[in-house]
């Protein structure tokens, strides 16, 4: 069991390493993507900065608190392209018939897909978000203890796992429809709502972001727990559980898709 897990991890690292070496051949692309990542993540900061120059709070949240939620979302969203961007290849692999080969190798097809590419924009996303997060942490009122740090890290890891599960689910649509991207992208667009305190939305959206597409757990609830506010701060501690459930669903759907898979062409 452990040996198998270690092998999976080792292979994953190898695949990703090879992909990175491949990308590094194009230095210009590397910098363009990092720049693009930084620009993208800064957009919301422009909005928040402009708005909070005029008002002290938004629905009861201060500027640093808003930046904290926003940048936490950015970190979670930015880390994934670095090590699991391959999920976006699933549709193309399936429709070009190359997914067949993945099934003839002694390594999990899902891990092969995930490790198939790397998005350097994630580096830009993560760097920009980390900078914002650092600034925000210095300006919010949190009593830091070793316990808080530890739980915070667990919540962060869970949030990343959760978002990946939701991406796997969105992209698994490729097994059923010819254009998987639109589904996954729509899922992501809904997820963008999770960059802000969900109290500003109506009940329907709040429920959607908490249950069916639980993006609120990828940033808002963990941040609310850290800040000890937002009404249901304790909900943030449920992030690991939500992540686990989302992975159960993701694996179930991916495997259903596998079974559904018929390779196209000859």
């Amino acid at each position: 069991m452990t040996a198998a897990l270690l092998r999976d991890l080792r292979l994953y690292r190898r695949c990703l390493g090879a992909v990175i070496r491949g990308i590094m051949e194009y230095v210009a692309d590397f910098w363009i993507l990092i720049g693009a990542g930084i620009v993208t993540q800064s957009l919301g900061l422009v909005f928040l900065g402009v708005v909070f120059a005029k008002v002290p709070t938004l629905a009861g949240w201060t500027f640093p608190e808003m930046v904290l939620i926003y940048s936490l979302f950015g970190i979670v969203a930015g880390v994934l392209p670095i090590f699991a961007d391959g999920i976006w290849n699933l549709g193309r692999l399936i429709h070009e018939g190359r997914f067949d080969y993945l099934l003839t190798r002694p390594y999990s097809p899902l891990l092969q897909v995930l490790s198939r590419s790397m998005g350097f924009n994630g580096v830009g996303d993560t760097l920009a978000s980390l900078a914002m997060f650092g600034w925000a942490v210095a300006h919010v009122d949190v009593a830091w203890t070793p316990g808080t740090v530890l739980v915070g890290l667990v919540l962060l890891a869970s949030a990343i796992a959760l978002r990946l599960a939701l991406l796997v689910i969105g992209n698994s649509a490729a097994f059923w429809v010819r254009s998987p991207f639109v589904f996954a992208i729509t899922v992501l667009r809904v997820g963008e709502l999770g960059r802000y305190p969900i109290g500003i939305y109506g009940l329907g959206i709040r429920l959607l972001l908490t249950t069916a597409l639980p993006f609120a757990f990828t940033a808002f609830y963990p941040a609310a727990w850290l800040l000890g506010r937002g009404g249901q701060a304790w909900l943030g501690l449920g992030t690991p559980l939500v992540a686990a459930l989302a992975w159960l669903a993701a694996l179930k759907i991916f495997n259903l898709g596998l079974r559904r898979y018929e390779s196209s062409g000859h």
């Binding site: 549709g91 059923w176 429809v177 010819r178 254009s179 991207f181 639109v182 992208i185 018929e262």
Partner: peptide
């Protein structure tokens, strides 16, 4: 089986 949508991707 497969639906038939193409990329707005």
């Amino acid at each position: 089986a497969a639906g038939d949508v193409d990329p707005a991707e």
